[in-house]
Simulated assay, not measured.
Amino acid sequence: MSPTAPKDPVLVAATLGTGLMAGLYLTFDIGVMPVLGRREDERFVAAMRRANDALDDDAAFGTLFLGVFVATGLAARGLARANRRDAARRARAAAGLYGLSVVTTVCVNLPLNRRLRAAPDASATALAEARAAYEVPWRRANAVRTAACLGALALLTGAMANRRRAVAR
Rank of each mutant, 00 (worst) to 15 (best):
R117A: 13
R164G: 03
L79C: 01
R115E: 01
L74A: 06
G23S: 12
A54W: 14
V45L: 04
F61D: 01
A13C: 07
N162F: 05
A47P: 05
F69M: 00
A93N: 08
D121H: 11
R85G: 12
V32K: 04
N52D: 10
T18Y: 15
D8G: 12
A14R: 00
D41K: 08
V136Y: 10
V102M: 09
A95N: 07
R145L: 01
R38G: 15
N83E: 11
A60S: 12
D57G: 09
R39V: 12
A82G: 01
L150C: 06
L64P: 10
E135M: 07
G158V: 03
G151C: 03
L16R: 10
F44I: 04
M160Y: 13
R115A: 06
L100M: 03
A143E: 07
S101V: 08
L74C: 10
G78M: 07
G151V: 00
R92Y: 14
R84P: 08
A46G: 13
A132L: 13
P34Q: 02
R131W: 11
L11Q: 06
T27W: 08
L16S: 11
A124G: 09
W138N: 03
N142E: 03
T157A: 15
T146F: 13
F69Q: 01
A76W: 04
R85Q: 12
R84S: 01
A93D: 04
A166T: 13
A5C: 09
T27P: 04
V12M: 00
V45H: 05
P9G: 12
A161T: 14
A159T: 09
R165N: 04
T146M: 00
R145G: 00
E129V: 11
R163A: 10
K7H: 04
L127K: 05
V12E: 01
L24A: 15
R117Q: 04
G96H: 07
A122N: 12
L112F: 13
R81D: 10
L55N: 07
G17Y: 12
V10W: 09
F61T: 12
M48S: 13
L97F: 13
R164A: 15
T125N: 08
F44A: 10
R43D: 11
T27D: 06
E135H: 13
R131K: 09
A168D: 03
E42M: 08
D86M: 12
E40C: 03
P120C: 03
A87Y: 13
T72C: 03
N113R: 04
